[in-house]
Simulated assay, not measured.
Amino acid sequence: MTPTPSPAFLRGPVSTLQEMLRTISHVDRAIPFLRPTGIFDEDTLAAVMTFQKVHGRPVTGVVDQQNWNAIQMAYLQAAQQLTPPRPVTLFSQGAAPIHPGQRHASLVHVQGMFRALAQVLDEVIPTPSTGVLDQDSTANLRWVQRHANLPQTGILDGNTWETLVRLFETFVTQTPQQVISGSA
């Protein structure tokens, strides 16, 4: 006697198919958006047939191994396109502080952040990306430290970095480009 598969087992592959087609639909608008139900319904059939048509496959509505593989490949490509870029840690809390006059690769990015902040905050000095903690960059760090109630050393340390990142995220990545006077 052959065991009968449980209903959960039968829904598993259909839910996976629906999730893959749903992800593909975010990249390829021709594919109908699905809400995974685990049931191979008319919406799922329409999405499969649309996928087959768009990808030059015979339009049968049947998900055989070749169609499954094609959907899986398209899903992997769509998921890769939809995945946000990985963040990069330029300066961590445990990193050695960078003192005025020192050269460090992460300062190029810090100076770029200052240039962007200078477009929206009047008191920030736009700095060239030299990789050296120069006079203007040091003045900007002191400005950040003053407004964060940190010791105004002009040294890039973990607390100053965290404050700078918050300022950048608040005034550059989350607001329209406009001039804002005063403090952060």
Results as ranks from 00 to 15, higher is better:
Pro3Phe: 09
Thr4Pro: 07
Pro5Val: 05
Ser6Leu: 09
Pro7Glu: 02
Pro7Thr: 06
Leu10Asn: 09
Leu10Ala: 12
Arg11Gln: 08
Pro13Val: 13
Ser15Gly: 10
Ser15Trp: 10
Thr16Met: 11
Leu17Gly: 00
Met20Glu: 03
Arg22Tyr: 12
Asp28Met: 06
Arg29Tyr: 14
Arg35Trp: 10
Pro36Ala: 07
Pro36Val: 01
Asp41Gly: 04
Thr44Pro: 00
Ala46Tyr: 11
Val48Gln: 00
Thr50Cys: 03
Val54Thr: 10
Gly56Trp: 08
Pro58Asp: 11
Pro58Cys: 13
Val59Lys: 11
Thr60Gly: 05
Val63Ile: 06
Gln66Met: 15
Asn67Leu: 08
Asn69Tyr: 14
Ile71Lys: 05
Ala74Leu: 07
Tyr75Asn: 04
Gln77Cys: 13
Gln77Trp: 15
Ala78Ile: 05
Gln81Thr: 15
Gln81Cys: 11
Thr83Val: 04
Thr83Gly: 04
Arg86Lys: 13
Pro87Gly: 09
Pro87Lys: 14
Val88Trp: 02
Val88Phe: 03
Pro100Lys: 06
Arg103Lys: 12
His104Leu: 01
Ser106Cys: 10
Val108Phe: 15
Val110Pro: 00
Arg115Asp: 10
Leu121Ala: 05
Ile125Asn: 04
Thr127Leu: 08
Thr127Cys: 12
Thr127Trp: 06
Pro128Leu: 09
Pro128Ala: 09
Pro128Cys: 06
Ser129Lys: 13
Val132Lys: 01
Asp134Val: 05
Asp134Leu: 02
Asp134Glu: 10
Thr138Tyr: 01
Ala139Pro: 02
Asn140Met: 05
Leu141His: 03
Val144Lys: 04
Val144Asp: 04
His147Glu: 12
Leu150Thr: 00
Gln152Asp: 13
Thr153Gly: 05
Thr153Ser: 03
Thr153Tyr: 03
Thr153Met: 03
Gly154Lys: 01
Gly158Leu: 09
Asn159Cys: 14
Asn159Val: 14
Thr160Ile: 14
Phe168Thr: 12
Phe168Arg: 09
Pro176Lys: 14
Gln178Ser: 13
Val179Arg: 11
Gly182Thr: 01
Gly182Cys: 01
Ala184Val: 12
